[in-house]
């Protein structure tokens, strides 16, 4: 969810505003006729969608896509996985090349004008803070005036400097920032929560912890063409069913993702509705 994605999404959104209004169709009937579901996915974004050592596309979202295909068409294999990038995924959807976007799509107002979002199946953590085990701070406010290593151009830099008064020491790339943190140039380092948590699992990082939790979460959802009600309902029903069966929690474990409160809460809610 880089700001770049948001921009490109916004531009695409504007371009396709007129087009999307006409593109009303019954995708559900259409895919049943074709007997295959075309889904735009990421193939370079672990843990959501990436290539494993056998060059197979795997990941958290891929599991969900296969589950949905199974619900809609009766087989997890009746799916055509089409790698997309942030700049083309909405256009591919609205031009009819794909039926569904499941590609780390962040929910934004601009995009909601040109596509419909499915259930928000993931709440992706924003930035969190990595620091030594001894660190005694656990709130963003406590970092005011402190040197914190980061990355140049990150979308949250403005909030951190302007709102929290943090003195960011921003590098051009991650390896330098990690090095500087280990050299004690900064009391902590700020970056995407998921990346930092995976870093903690690497050798040499035993003395570190996530000291401050993210201050924001960005919901991620699937995307369908606007006004495609029957298809949207079917996809949503499949997502909620998977949630109620704790499948998303299983996939979190399978792909080494930190357990998310959002997913656990949605699983509870899905079961509550079903009863």
């Amino acid at each position: 969810m880089s700001p770049y994605n948001a921009l490109i999404g916004g531009v695409t959104a504007t371009l396709l505003l007129g087009f999307a209004a006409q593109a009303q169709s019954d995708t559900l009937a259409d895919i049943r006729e074709r007997d295959v579901l075309s889904v735009g996915i990421k193939n370079d974004y672990p843990p959501y969608g990436y290539l494993d050592e056998n060059n197979e596309i795997v990941g958290f979202e891929i599991e969900l896509v296969r589950y949905i295909a199974n619900e809609l068409l009766g087989s997890p294999d009746k799916v055509e996985l089409i790698p997309v990038v942030a700049s083309n995924r909405i256009e591919l959807l609205n031009s009819g090349r794909i039926d569904l976007i499941m590609a780390t799509l962040g929910v934004t107002e601009e995009r909601a004008q040109v596509i419909d979002f499915t259930e928000h199946y993931v709440s992706a953590a924003g930035a969190s803070v990595l620091a030594r085990q001894e660190a005694r701070f656990d709130q963003w406010e406590q970092l005011e005036g402190q040197n914190v290593c980061g990355i140049q151009g990150a979308y949250y830099n403005r909030t951190l400097t302007d709102h929290y008064g943090i003195r960011l020491v921003n590098f051009t790339a991650l390896p330098e920032a990690y090095r500087a943190l280990q050299d004690n140039r900064c009391v902590a380092m700020v970056f995407d929560d998921m990346t930092l948590r995976q870093k903690l699992g690497e050798p040499g990082w035993e003395g570190y912890k996530i000291a401050v939790e993210p201050y924001e979460y960005l919901p991620m959802a699937g995307g369908v063409r606007k006004g495609d009600e029957a298809f949207l309902d079917a996809v949503n029903a499949a997502i909620v069913k998977a949630e109620g069966e704790d499948r998303l929690i299983d996939w979190e474990g399978e792909y080494d993702m930190p357990p998310s409160d959002h997913i656990a809460a949605r699983a509870e809610a899905a079961r509550a509705v079903a009863e």
Partner: peptide
Amino acid sequence: ASVITVPELMYAAGQVYSDTF
């Protein structure tokens, strides 16, 4: 010097255009 985090003109400019495009 922006590469080693000295907050000079290029460092500031990079952050501004990352935010504003």
